[in-house]
């Protein structure tokens, strides 16, 4: 039984291979890039604008609003990274309605890659905000004893990110596949709808968790000059 689109290999040359994950990722990338280019080519700055521009503005401002709500005071700085995570995962899930499509997020390799990106981005944003020393000091808080736990937490949450997304996406595709063999009518459609919902929720969860991690890495410094009221 095929668990991952990694197993569908179109072309291989030694270590290098071109599997369905990469191909569908390219497809999603193409859709996003070309769609954005076409829509943003003629942007209107007036009060009258096209529906597609309206849609993109709603999406972008919604993402920006979410980032700001989590606690990042300069959302435009993190918009590219966090917004792309959301849009990629959401688009990858939405495309499951196309027959023959395999979501790249159903591959553990993809989710691990995304989690690794978050794993690398969090300290980078933290260091950018408070310097190397300041960021590394945050691992020693509240005490030095917490250092191993902090490191374990960092690794485990990255792993959790990857596995959560993979599990959800893979199971969705898997359930639809299994159900198609058992009850080929109606029920798979319902499950597909559920899969779409799950995909959107996962996209939201993945991006919001990444936002929270980045906010946590940055906020450590922001909290320092403000002593807690009542010494609590």
């Amino acid at each position: 039984m095929r668990l991952s689109p990694d197993d569908i290999i179109f072309w291989q040359y030694g270590f290098i291979k071109l599997n369905a994950t990469i191909v569908f990722t390219w497809a999603v990338m193409l859709v996003l890039a070309v769609g954005s280019t076409v829509i943003t080519r003629h942007l209107s700055t007036g009060l009258k604008r096209s529906r597609w521009q309206n849609l993109l503005e709603i999406v972008v401002t919604a993402i920006q609003g979410q980032i700001e709500e989590v606690g990042l005071s300069q959302p435009h700085k993190y918009l590219s990274f966090l917004g792309t995570i959301f849009l990629f995962v959401a688009t990858a899930s939405l495309c499951t309605i196309i027959p023959g499509y395999e979501p790249p997020t159903g591959s553990l390799s993809t989710t691990v890659a995304l989690a690794l990106c978050v794993f690398v981005a969090v300290p980078l944003f933290g260091i950018e905000e408070q310097g190397v020393g300041g960021y590394l000091k945050s691992y020693l808080k509240p005490t030095v004893i917490m250092l191993p736990f902090n490191i374990i937490s960092e690794l485990s949450r990255t792993l959790a990110l990857a596995v959560r997304l993979f599990g959800n996406m893979m199971s969705g595709a898997m359930i639809v596949g299994i159900l198609l063999t058992i009850t080929p009518f109606i029920f798979p459609i319902v499950m597909s709808l559920l899969g779409l919902l799950t995909g959107m929720v996962q996209a939201y969860i993945f991006s919001i968790l990444a936002t929270v991690y980045i906010a946590a890495a940055i906020r450590t410094r922001q909290r320092e000059p403000q002593p807690e009221p009542g010494g609590k």
């Binding site: 990338m29 890039a33 590219s80 917004g83 390799s109 890659a113 995304l114 690794l116």
Partner: peptide, 16 residues
């Protein structure tokens, strides 16, 4: 694939 996807993701970040 992990490396390729990471690279793809970074390219997508830049593109978007």
């Amino acid at each position: 694939t992990v490396a390729a996807q990471a690279l793809n993701f970074l390219i997508l970040v830049w593109l978007l």
